[in-house]
Design a binder for these strands. Structure first.
Lengths: 136, 136
DNA sequence: CTATTTCCCTATCGGATTAGTAGGCTAATA
DNA sequence: TATTAGCCTACTAATCCGATAGGGAAATAG
């Protein structure tokens, strides 16, 4: 299940990406428009900024803006920052790999192989979609 | 993230499906072989029985056995019983649909459309895979 | 008939995570 | 100097998950 953090984060960055001329958008504007708790959204945008997706400007007329072209932001990288692993099981994760305690042989594990297939197909979607694709 | 319940449940039913002549398998046997807490596994197998996948036999020589041919048990139906919705977001779920509180227009929601695509590809895998496919 | 085996069922619990809140701080601008 | 708007840390309520406890009931063996 997708966390609200991810859902809110995606909606917010899509909102920001829709601005013309990359004008900074205030947190409060997004929060109101997307019905997201302001303080919670604040922390989400903070992590998106610390991850290098967004820049920020303080004081009057401030807000958040994209640091890169929307075409160059892959959905998969957004998902990894917001949600964490894309795989449903750590033992098939590329970026968050972890061995199972049980399961002596991964290749013989039915769950492993099934989830490997799911991860591939999901990743294929996320890797081939950019923020720009989400806007329209 | 896949819950342990699902992981254990899948491993267990795969174990049961591997038996020759559909001989009943005891909970304890599976628990030991797959390193699963016995009591926890007990409750998982109970739900699989109540959902019509497994039959049970009590007393000596008892245990769990498949009620249908492994070919006729789709992974998607197992997933729905064990894990719940296959979709990452309720608003794109076929069997567990729920409208978002926020989001006035689903078709205009970037997250909705993205997750719709993911659900389709995941479901495609789960629908076209049976328990028999997991065994080998 | 009795003992043993094995599944049946309900209740409970600790720990982790999530979503959200509070509140003060700091930089930029007017 | 006042105001605006993001920065940052800490805290909390609620929920869920994985696991545990413990007795009950049916089937079988002897």
């Amino acid at each position: 299940m997708l966390s609200k953090k991810t859902k809110y984060g995606l909606k917010a960055i899509v909102y920001i990406a829709r601005q013309e001329c990359n004008t900074p958008v205030q947190i409060a504007t997004i929060a109101e428009s997307e019905s997201i708790s302001l303080k919670y959204l604040e922390s989400i945008l903070l992590t998106l900024r610390k991850s290098g997706f967004l820049g920020s400007k303080r004081g009057k007329g401030g807000g958040y803006y994209l640091l890169k072209n929307a075409k160059d932001i892959k959905v998969s990288s957004l998902m990894r920052i917001l949600e964490g692993p894309i795989a449903m099981v750590p033992c098939v994760s590329l970026n968050f790999y972890e061995k199972c305690d049980d399961c002596p042989d991964e290749n013989a594990c039915a769950v492993h192989n099934l989830m490997l297939e799911v991860r591939d197909s999901t990743l294929h979607i996320f890797n081939n979609k950019s923020l720009a694709d989400l806007i329209s």
